[in-house]
Structures are given as C-alpha cells and as structure tokens.
Amino acid sequence: MNKIKYELVTYRVHGGMLAIFVKCSQYGSVIELDTNVRVFNDEWSKEFGLISKSPNAANLNLLIRKLVYNLEEIELTYSGEITLSKLHDIYSKRGASADWYVMWEKSMNERGLKPRTIAIHANVLKTIKKFRGSCPVTSLTEDFFRGFMGFLINSGLKYSTVCKEMHVVKAYYNIARKLYGDKVPSDAFAFYHDPKDLNNTYKLKSLSDDDIRKIENYVASGTLSESKKLTINQFLFMSYSGTRISDFASLNEKNFKLENDRIWLEYNSVKTNTHVRIPLFALFDGRGEQIYSQYQNRLSEFFMWGAIADSIQGYLPLLKEVGLTSM
C-alpha cells in the first residue's frame, strides 16, 4: 500500500483570515479537505503547523488532529487499495461520526433517491431507533439484526412488510461496511436472504402426496443435522396444517387445544383476522400432531422468529436436495 501523506496548509480567505486544510498526497496526486477552522493571521504558527495564540487554540488543534486521525483510520481500515478519490468520497459521506444512524441519514439524502423512497427509508430508520435508541457501527452484529427482525414481527407486521424493511436495513449495513471497513462486524447479515433473491434462484413445483413422502423419507434418513431437521419439520408442519408462514410465526402453546385426547390448532389468521380451527389428528394421518408432540416441550424454539426466518430462507435449498425444486 502506498501510504497517504497528510499535512496542514493554510490559505487566505475573504475577510483576511486563514482557512486551514488537510493536504492529502499519494502517487503524485493531491486533494485538500477543508477543516472548516478559520483563524487570524497572527494565531497560526507556520513553524509548528498549529494554532498558537487563539484563546481556543487547544480545542481547535484537537479538532484538526481528530480530523487527520479519522482520515488515516479510513485509509488503514479500508478493504482493498485506497485512493485519494475513494478517501474523499468515503469521508464526505461518513463524516467524523461512527454513529450508524447519522451515517444512514446522511447517505439517505445523498444517494439521489426519489422523495417517496427517502420517506420509506426514513420511516424504517425511525422504527429501528425505537428498537434501539443509539447504534455505533461496531454494534451492527447478527444478534442486533435478528433482534430487530423479532421486534418487527412482534409489532404485528406482515411477513412481506418485515422483508421490505429488512431489505432497506441491509442496504445501509452494506454502506456502513463500505465506509467503515473492519470497524463493522462482517457477515452480520449472512443469516438473512431476501425472499426475492430466493424466488429468482429456486422454482418450487406444486407438491403432491408423493412429494410429501419424499420429504418425510429425507427427514427419516437420519443424515440430517438437528438444525436442518428443524427446518424441514417446520415446512412439513405448515404443509400438513395449511398455515401461512405469517400465521405459523404467530403460534405458541396457547394455540393448541386438547379435546378428547386429540389436538386441535386454533388461531386468528394474521392476514384476514379469520378464526381458524384445524384438527391436526385428522389431516395426513395425524402427522402434524406427531410433529407437535415431538417439539411439545420446546415450542418456543420451534416457533421462535429466528428459527422461522431460517426456515423460510432455508427450506428451498433443502428441498432442492430432495429434488423438488429446480434452478
């Protein structure tokens, strides 16, 4: 890496004062970034390159020093070869703050988005601030984003709306990765795959009884890990009971009623608010009831949002292994 050189330079500006700039040099090229600090001529020490006589000298010198440190931090943490144009672009968008919300708002208004799109992104930002009041870029972890997904679903949003909001959040996570480099945890969004991307990758055929048997035999083969088995069983339960993903995500132990030693599933549909009552024992020879019994002591794990999200995005690749989807 060809290290960028930094030095302070001054220029006389309107009003007779001196403007202080940071001069950045690399490969014979130069850019100059304004510190926005202005001083009188007799307050600047050219010999030592600092403000010497101003009553605010200590704080102003510290401000300038932090700016240089911020520039150098961008250079040293950038993934790949840094150039002066990239340094200028990143710094102008990033500013001196490592607050993700500040970066979000600044980027949102500088990306050339349509007013309606800006309004949508601003609303998502408002929502995520309700989830967590402040967020430095170092806190952009998988736990943070999984937690926000849970916050959205628990607020009663439809699954499609949750996906739209997560799509926006992922865009600003990627911008943070670009602007702040290694300061931002990597792969924090690896757990989440946009359903639109999955729809473009996999085509799911209409399932027949024989297809369901193939999936059941796949689970019974004993070759699956516990996480894959959980994913397929979630899919099978939805298939047996005919529940939508949004309804499945809203279930808990209170939705299962025992009557005459038989299990009934009862819930109000998230989409239509219609009361639904399903005899699990009477459908597919009671195989939905069998899955319920298998996870009866850990239903919170079976229906928890993180596992459901993994199921939604994970069952297509697994079904491809069974031979029920095509690229």
Rank of each mutant, 00 (worst) to 15 (best):
L319V: 04
G181R: 03
L299N: 04
K257M: 05
Y202D: 06
N260K: 06
I245W: 08
L50H: 11
N41M: 12
D247K: 09
T77Q: 13
I128R: 07
S225H: 05
E142Y: 01
G147N: 07
L318Q: 08
V219S: 12
E47I: 08
M238V: 04
Y202F: 14
T274N: 11
D310H: 13
N268R: 14
E216M: 13
F40S: 12
F21C: 04
N174G: 03
L50G: 00
Y315F: 15
T274Q: 15
F284I: 03
E226C: 01
H167W: 02
G15C: 04
N41H: 11
I128G: 09
Y180S: 03
K254W: 06
S208E: 13
R111W: 11
F21Q: 10
S293I: 13
N109V: 07
F237L: 14
K320V: 00
F235D: 03
S97I: 08
S239I: 08
T272S: 08
Y6P: 00
A176M: 04
K178A: 09
T117G: 09
V270Q: 14
K254Q: 15
S326D: 12
S186K: 15
I278P: 07
Q313L: 03
P136S: 09
S206P: 02
N199C: 07
M108E: 13
T77Y: 06
V322D: 04
I232C: 09
Y218L: 08
D34W: 05
Q294R: 11
S79Y: 10
T117F: 05
K229E: 12
L204H: 02
E81P: 03
S225Q: 02
I232F: 12
Q296P: 00
T83K: 14
E253H: 15
A307W: 05
L324E: 04
P279A: 06
S186I: 15
F237R: 13
T141S: 14
Y173L: 03
G49V: 00
I153Q: 12
Y173K: 02
I74D: 07
G181S: 05
C163G: 04
K106Y: 07
S29P: 00
E7M: 09
S300D: 15
Y292G: 03
F191Q: 06
N268S: 14
N255S: 14
F148H: 06
S221K: 02
K196P: 01
G16V: 10
K320G: 09
L319R: 00
R116M: 11
L179P: 03
T138S: 15
S208Y: 05
A96Y: 03
T35W: 06
G181A: 06
N252Y: 06
H121K: 06
A190I: 12
Q290L: 12
Y172Q: 08
M103T: 15
S134A: 13
K130I: 09
K170P: 00
S225C: 04
C135M: 11
K5A: 12
A188T: 08
L67M: 15
V37S: 08
A57Y: 01
D210F: 07
M238Q: 12
L230T: 07
N199Y: 11
I90L: 10
G323V: 10
G112S: 10
Y202W: 07
D285P: 00
M1L: 07
N36I: 02
K320F: 10
E43V: 05
L283P: 10
L236S: 05
D34V: 01
Y27W: 05
F151Y: 15
K178E: 15
P317S: 10
D89L: 06
